[in-house]
Amino acid sequence: MDVLSDEQLIAQYRLAPAAERSRPLVEELFRRHQSRVVAWCYRLTGDRTQAADLAQEVFAKAYASLDAFRSDSKFTTWLYVITRNRWRDELRARRARPRETSEASIDEVEPTGENEALAALEARDARAIVRRLMADVLDETEQRVMTLHYGHEMRLDAITATLGLTNASGAKAYIVSAKRKLNAAVKRWKKNSSTAP
C-alpha cells in the first residue's frame, strides 16, 4: 500500500462498491497528510487545540467528499482547497459570534501610521489606483502581505506563519513599509494628476 500514490489509493478505494470500501486505504491516505494539515491549521489559528479541531473537520470533509475528487488533480491540492474553505467557514462563523468579533477582526494587530494621502483617496478610484501603484512600488512580498491582509482578511500572524516570513516583525513590518511606499506613491500620483494639462 505504501508504494501507491495518493491518487492510486483513491482509485483503488473507489473501485469497490460503496458498501465494501476499505477504510484502511483512506486511513493510509490521510495519515500521509496529517502533519501537513495540522501544521497548516496551526499556522492559521496559532492555537494547538483549534488546529487539531480544524484538522479533524478537514479530514471529515475530505472523507465525505472523496467521491468528488477529480483524478486529474493532485490530492494535496484538493486537500488544500478543503482546508482553506473550512478555515474561511470558521472565520465567518466567528465573526457572526459577537463575543469573538475582536478576535477575528483584522484590527487586532493593525499597524497604524500617517498615511493621509492614501486614506484620502476617493473610494470609487481606490481599486484601480491602489492596485496599479502597488504593482509599481511594492516588492512581491509586500504586495502579497497587503493582499492577504486587506483583500483576504487574514490576520498578520497567520500571514507571517503561512508564508514563512522570518524577519523580526513578520507581516507587520511589510504592511508598515508597503503603506509608507503606497502613501508616497499616491502623493506623487495626485501631484502629477493636478499638474497634468
Binding site: 498615511n115 486614506a119 481606490a126 491602489v130 492596485r131 486587506y150
Partner: peptide, 9 residues
C-alpha cells in the same frame, strides 16, 4: 484607510 484598502484589494 482599512475599509478603503479592503475595498481596493
Amino acid at each position: 484607510e482599512k475599509e478603503l484598502l479592503h475595498g481596493a484589494l
